[in-house]
Simulated scan of single mutants.
Amino acid sequence: MAEIINLRQARKARERIVKDEKAAENRVAFGRPKKARTLAESRKAVETARHEGHRLRGDDPEA
C-alpha cells in the first residue's frame, strides 16, 4: 500500500524550499548591512595605516 501524503503540506514544504534558496541567493548578492561594511573598511584602513607606519624605510618599493 502506498504512503498517504498531505498535498497541502507537500506544497508548502516545496514553496519553503524555493523561498530558502531565493533567500540564500539574496544573502550572497546583497551581503552585509552598510554599517557592518563601513566598520570593516574603517578597521582595515586603521590596520593598514598602523602596518605602514612601522616601515623602516620610506616608500621605496625595492627596499
Rank of each mutant, 00 (worst) to 15 (best):
23 A>W: 03
56 L>V: 09
51 H>P: 00
34 K>W: 04
59 D>S: 14
43 R>C: 11
20 D>K: 08
14 R>A: 15
31 G>S: 04
36 A>T: 06
23 A>F: 05
33 P>L: 02
20 D>M: 09
47 E>G: 03
41 E>V: 10
61 P>S: 04
4 I>L: 06
44 K>L: 12
43 R>F: 14
48 T>D: 12
47 E>D: 12
43 R>E: 15
6 N>F: 05
7 L>A: 10
2 A>C: 02
24 A>N: 03
42 S>D: 10
17 I>L: 10
23 A>E: 14
18 V>Y: 02
33 P>A: 13
50 R>K: 13
48 T>F: 07
35 K>H: 08
32 R>M: 09
59 D>R: 13
22 K>M: 14
54 H>S: 11
16 R>M: 11
63 A>V: 07
35 K>F: 05
3 E>R: 08
20 D>Y: 04
2 A>H: 05
20 D>W: 02
33 P>Y: 01
60 D>F: 14
3 E>T: 07
34 K>T: 07
49 A>G: 08
9 Q>G: 01
26 N>R: 13
16 R>I: 00
6 N>V: 03
18 V>C: 01
23 A>L: 12
17 I>Q: 12
62 E>C: 06
40 A>E: 11
8 R>S: 09
29 A>G: 00
29 A>M: 12
63 A>S: 07
57 R>I: 07
25 E>G: 02
4 I>R: 06
27 R>N: 08
11 R>N: 03
17 I>M: 04
21 E>P: 00
27 R>A: 13
15 E>T: 01
8 R>M: 09
11 R>Y: 12
32 R>A: 10
7 L>V: 03
11 R>H: 06
35 K>T: 10
14 R>E: 13
24 A>F: 03
11 R>L: 14
32 R>H: 05
15 E>Q: 11
43 R>Y: 09
47 E>M: 06
47 E>T: 09
36 A>P: 00
45 A>R: 15
55 R>K: 14
58 G>Y: 06
53 G>L: 05
8 R>T: 08
45 A>N: 08
37 R>Q: 10
61 P>R: 03
34 K>Y: 12
41 E>S: 07
56 L>N: 02
4 I>S: 05
32 R>E: 01
37 R>E: 11
21 E>F: 05
52 E>P: 00
16 R>S: 15
52 E>A: 11
8 R>A: 10
57 R>T: 10
30 F>T: 07
59 D>A: 14
34 K>S: 12
31 G>W: 03
1 M>S: 13
53 G>R: 00
16 R>T: 13
42 S>N: 11
11 R>V: 02
58 G>Q: 04
61 P>H: 05
12 K>G: 00
32 R>L: 10
17 I>W: 04
38 T>R: 13
23 A>K: 03
21 E>K: 11
49 A>P: 00
17 I>R: 09
